[in-house]
Computed example of a mutant assay.
Amino acid sequence: MPDTAMSDSAPPWAPPAAVLFDMDGTLVDTEHLWWQAAAELATELDLTLTERDVPEVLGRAVEHTAAHLHRSSGTARSEADLVERLGDSFAGKVATEIVPRPGALALLAALHDARVPTALVSASPRRVVDLVLGSIGSEWFTVTLAAEDTERTKPAPDPYLAAAGLLGLDPATCVAVEDTPTGVASAHAAGCAVLAVPSAVPIGAAPRVTLLDSLEQADLALLGKLAAAPAV
Rank of each mutant, 00 (worst) to 15 (best):
G59M: 12
G59V: 11
G59W: 13
R60G: 00
V62S: 14
E63W: 14
E63D: 15
A67C: 09
H68Q: 05
H70M: 03
R71N: 05
S72G: 05
S72C: 10
G74V: 09
G74T: 08
G74R: 12
R77F: 07
R77T: 07
S78I: 11
S78K: 13
E79Y: 11
A80F: 05
D81L: 13
L82A: 01
L82C: 01
L82I: 06
V83Q: 14
E84H: 15
G87T: 11
D88K: 14
F90S: 02
F90K: 13
A91Y: 13
G92E: 12
K93E: 11
V94S: 01
V94E: 02
A95T: 09
R101T: 08
R101M: 13
P102E: 09
P102R: 12
G103T: 04
G103N: 04
A106K: 13
L107A: 09
L108T: 02
A109I: 08
A110C: 05
H112R: 15
A114W: 02
A114E: 01
A114M: 01
V116S: 06
P117E: 06
A119M: 03
V121H: 03
S122E: 08
S122V: 09
R126Q: 09
R126F: 05
R126N: 03
V129A: 03
D130T: 14
L133N: 01
S135I: 11
S135H: 15
I136R: 00
I136S: 00
G137E: 05
F141A: 05
V143K: 06
A147P: 00
E148C: 00
E148F: 08
E148G: 03
T153L: 04
K154C: 00
P155S: 08
A156W: 15
P157G: 04
D158M: 03
D158C: 06
D158A: 09
Y160T: 02
L161N: 06
A164V: 11
G165Y: 13
L166A: 12
L166D: 11
G168S: 07
G168H: 10
D170I: 12
A172N: 07
T173E: 15
V175W: 02
A176C: 03
A176T: 04
E178W: 04
D179S: 07
T182A: 12
T182G: 06
G183C: 10
G183F: 12
V184G: 06
H188G: 08
V194Q: 02
V194N: 02
L195G: 07
V197D: 08
P198C: 04
P198Q: 04
S199Y: 14
G204W: 07
G204I: 07
